[in-house]
């Protein structure tokens, strides 16, 4: 019996991998190996919750935005991010169904540290220039990784990303517009961007993840490539980021806070100073400068509003 069972399962798996290789889209109700499901849950829940936790550092600057237009721009932007979070958590909820888990469990996983969010959203924001850097470079980095997954093998994720990436392009333009105004402004404004870039640079490099699992002890990039969820490695993403943004940063008269960075004509690769990957590990384990504060903010508001969710479960006639 066991052998027969195994043979059937192997056949199912082989069929599944053929579909992946053919470029078929896998849908929520299709059979999928547990490894695939768990890889997706891990990736998409982390992406979704990062959108939601990412609203918090930017939200700090929503009321403070320095003009009516900037206020409107950043309000729209942060609203979009919450919308992305909502879309992605819905995709995750479908994947969680066989485990009997729901959104409440996703939130609990966030609060108890089992669900991580992107390193950049653990960082402190200090000035208005940070709102610009987040839009321009953090969202710019996200566009690089997310557009690579537009053809992801999992249909619901690929479709959610179509919309998300289109909106992220606006966000990057919004961030770039803030940065351009500061770059063309007073000496204090220019200094504000440089100071912000200096603080964010290392976090931006970390955003793409370690080059290999040897760096930090774990990396899921091999699995996501095997299942054609994405096609490029973390390091390839980081190189693309340099290709795109190093010239732009320099053209604004800003300095890259890494004196060693250079483009090697022969290998066509950038060499650069590695960020502190031990620090990265600490940050994503909720040991970053604002990890606890932001988690507490999210947790306290979740608990504070528990009565509302109870009230919503009462059917009104």
């Amino acid at each position: 019996m066991t052998n027969l069972h195994n043979a059937a399962e192997e056949e199912q798996l082989a069929h599944f991998m053929q579909r992946i290789e053919r470029g078929d889209k896998i849908e929520a109700d299709d059979w999928m190996p547990e490894e695939y499901r768990l890889t997706l849950i891990r990736l998409i829940s982390m992406h979704g919750i990062s959108e939601i936790m990412g609203a918090l550092p930017e939200k700090e600057w929503v009321p403070k935005a320095p003009s009516l237009n900037r206020k409107l721009g950043i309000m729209a932007k942060v609203q979009d991010e919450m919308g992305h979070g909502q879309l992605l958590l819905r995709v995750t909820e479908d994947l969680l169904l066989p485990y009997g888990k729901n959104r409440g469990d996703i939130m609990q996983d966030l609060f108890n540290g089992n669900l991580k969010f992107h390193n950049v959203f653990h960082m402190e924001t200090k000035t208005w220039a940070d709102a610009g850097i987040i839009g321009w470079l953090v969202d710019g980095a996200a566009i690089i990784t997310q557009t690579n997954m537009l053809n992801a093998s999992y249909g619901p994720y690929a479709r959610a990303l179509q919309r998300i990436c289109a909106e992220e392009v606006f966000h990057a333009q919004h961030g770039e517009s803030i940065i351009m105004s500061l770059a063309e402004g007073t000496e204090e404004q220019k200094a504000m961007i440089q100071e912000s870039l200096d603080r964010w640079w290392e976090a931006l490099l970390m955003f793409f993840g370690p080059a290999s699992k040897e760096t930090t002890g774990s990396s899921k990039q091999d699995l996501t490539i095997k299942y054609k969820i994405r096609s490029k490695t973390n390091e390839e993403f980081r190189q693309l980021f340099f290709d795109k943004y190093v010239p732009r940063i320099l053209s604004l008269g800003l300095r890259i806070p890494d004196p060693t960075i250079r483009f090697d004509e022969e290998s066509k690769l950038w060499s650069y100073k590695q960020p502190d990957w031990n620090e990265f590990k600490k940050i994503i384990k909720n040991g970053g400068p604002r990890s606890h504060a932001r988690l507490n903010l999210r947790r306290s508001s979740y608990e504070n509003n528990a009565w509302v969710r109870d009230a919503l479960s009462v059917k009104v006639t």
């Binding site: 609203a55 939200k59 609203q79 979070g85």
Partner: peptide
């Protein structure tokens, strides 16, 4: 806008 990110559920936040 002070409620941003803190509404009772994510749909409401949007």
């Amino acid at each position: 806008s002070e409620w941003l990110g803190l509404a009772p559920h994510i749909e409401e936040d949007v």
